[in-house]
């Protein structure tokens, strides 16, 4: 466990808790893409199939349970409990445009043509693009609540920190995971524009506005 990976996981947990906090306290899913959250659910379920078959550590299992349960809870809040506040008109990204390519790529590029490895690769590829509906929604609505911006910053930072972890592991352990690293770089690059807006606006106390 490198420090970067621990920082990345904590940033990930922070993001998940920030989103639950925002929806629960404002009793509103306004500005949140349900489609992104649905895809995150898929990401965790397809990635952690080994939750009950391979025990790595208490930390590893606890985090997997947390990620799966928190993402299910988030989807429940958006599509059921606070359904009336879900802004479906602005959450128009076609999920199949990312789910299908991720599945096809996983069938082509995987470490073994087994259900588990294909499911894992699908999860890695899907996670890289799952944020797209949310980023599209922010550009469509033209702005994001501050807490939503902080959520996105924490979420984008998590995989960026993982990249540092992979560099660290390659340097010290001499191996790396091409699938995870490639997808992780794509995932982090997709936040590029958001990171720019975050650092130039939100940090200075202004609302995140996507300039028209």
């Amino acid at each position: 466990m490198t420090l970067f990976r621990l920082a990345g996981d904590l940033s990930h947990v922070l993001a998940i808790l920030l989103l639950l906090y925002k929806i629960w306290t404002t009793k509103s899913a306004a500005g949140i893409s349900g489609k992104t959250q649905l895809m995150f659910c898929m990401v965790y379920v397809t990635r952690y199939l080994d939750l009950f078959t391979s025990f790595i550590s208490v930390y590893n299992s606890t985090m997997k349970v947390l990620f799966i349960s928190a993402s299910v809870a988030t989807v429940y809040l958006i599509y059921f409990k606070f359904k009336a506040t879900y802004d479906g008109n602005h959450d128009t990204f076609r999920m199949e445009f990312v789910i299908v390519p991720a599945l096809i790529l996983a069938l082509i590029w995987n470490y073994a043509f087994t259900f588990f490895e294909i499911s894992w690769a699908f999860s890695i590829f899907l996670e890289a693009v799952a944020i797209l509906p949310q980023l599209f929604m922010v550009t469509k609505t033209g702005e994001a609540e501050n807490i939503t911006s902080h959520y996105l910053f924490a979420l984008g930072s998590y995989r960026a920190l993982y990249i540092l972890n992979w560099i660290d592991r390659y340097y010290f352990e001499g191996h790396w995971d091409p699938i995870a690293v490639t997808a992780g770089i794509v995932q982090t690059v997709l936040y590029g524009d958001f990171f720019y807006l975050y650092f130039t606006r939100v940090i200075k106390g202004r609302k995140l506005q996507v300039l028209p």
């Binding site: 997997k64 990620f67 470490y111 191996h175 790396w176």
Partner: peptide
Amino acid sequence: SGATASKDEL
């Protein structure tokens, strides 16, 4: 190889 490299990661 890459396979086991990051299965201990989340």
